[in-house]
């Protein structure tokens, strides 16, 4: 075949030169070459470690009240002392210890609710996108109905009826946050389903279940990861909102949202009561988003931002 002499080099990878690296090497290269991912994953890792080892890290019992040490300011403000690094709240509990224990609530609710939403949204989205027809009509109706409901109001009502607990909050926040997953996976599934590799799989005798798991799911993965981290942030904020409004986590359990709520009366005199848990929330949410964007880039076969 003399004609092969004239293959046009479009990209350096054209002749598969990149395969000299093993897949693991490529993955590691991308992982450690992505600044955004490293920052995001670092933040999340630190927060998760803090959540797990909270009892070892926290200098005080987060529930221990001390009337003599009420409303102490942080150490860098006049009147602060080194016993209570970040000061104390109106009941004399150590603010740093409460922030440290608060990570547990935020992480649990964030991951739990985003996972509940993922399971509902992706299942419905793939079914609607793959099978179409009446399944699609029914699921699209469900979506419209969900979007028409005022989410936070409904959540408040449900928590009020069922009674507040961390598991109820996870369930309700999750059940209210599946619409993004549905919209994105439905559209992507419709697009992927019409591609020839799905037809090739069907011609080899693959069942719908095998096509969905082996052909479609891997192509949805990067979209799902991004929505998951996005929803993780939203769920954490939703928990904070519910706790702030008094229908989420109940005192005395430490939660960042609850701490902001408790600090709000004194916001103008002791702003750190609101600012400190606010910073924690911000770091957690931005860490989740950075890690999600990074994972999307790293897991796509072409790679991005290289």
């Amino acid at each position: 075949m003399t004609s092969t002499d004239f293959s046009i080099p479009v990209t350096p990878a054209e002749d598969g030169a990149e395969t000299a690296l093993t897949p693991g090497q490529i993955f590691r290269q991308r992982l450690f070459g992505h600044t955004g991912f490293l920052i995001g994953a670092g933040l999340i890792l630190i927060i998760v470690v803090i959540a797990i080892f909270a009892p070892l890290i926290a200098p005080h019992d987060p529930f221990a009240q001390s009337l003599s040490a009420r409303m102490l300011p942080p150490v860098w403000v006049e009147g602060g002392n080194w016993d209570y690094l970040l000061g104390t709240d109106q009941n004399g509990r150590d603010y740093l210890s409460r922030l440290i224990y608060g990570t547990r609530v935020s992480i649990t609710i964030g991951l739990g609710a985003a996972t509940v939403g993922l399971l509902i949204g992706v299942t419905l989205g793939v079914i609607a996108g793959y099978f179409g027809g009446w399944a699609d009509h029914a699921i699209s109706f469900l979506l419209t109905a969900q979007l028409a409901l005022p989410g936070l109001l409904l959540a408040m009502a449900l928590v009020f009826i069922i009674g507040p607990s961390i598991w109820v909050v996870i369930g309700i926040v999750g059940v209210l946050h599946w619409t993004y997953y549905l919209v994105v996976t439905r559209a992507a599934t419709q697009r992927i389903r019409s591609q020839d590799f799905v037809a090739a799989a069907a011609a080899s005798g693959a069942s719908p279940r095998q096509i969905i798991w082996h052909e479609i799911m891997p192509n949805l993965l990067s979209a799902i990861i991004v929505i998951f981290t996005f929803e993780l942030g939203i769920a954490i904020l939703a928990e904070s909102s519910l706790s702030f409004l008094g229908v989420g986590i109940q005192p005395p359990t430490p939660s960042w949202g609850l701490m902001i709520a408790e600090g709000k009366q004194a916001m103008f005199y002791r702003p750190w009561l609101v600012i400190l848990p606010g910073i924690c929330l911000f770091l957690l949410v931005i860490g989740a988003n950075l890690m999600g964007d990074g994972l999307r880039d790293i897991t796509s076969p072409e790679g991005r931002n290289e």
Binding site: Q195, D196, F197, A199, A200, A202, A203, S204, G205, A206, S207, E215, P218, N219
Partner: peptide, 20 residues
């Protein structure tokens, strides 16, 4: 379905969409 694959297999037009 899987028996059919023994008889006939497809090659499609656009190689950019026919591979996962």
């Amino acid at each position: 379905a899987t028996e059919r694959a023994r008889f006939v297999q497809p090659v499609f037009q656009d190689p950019y969409t026919s591979l996962n």
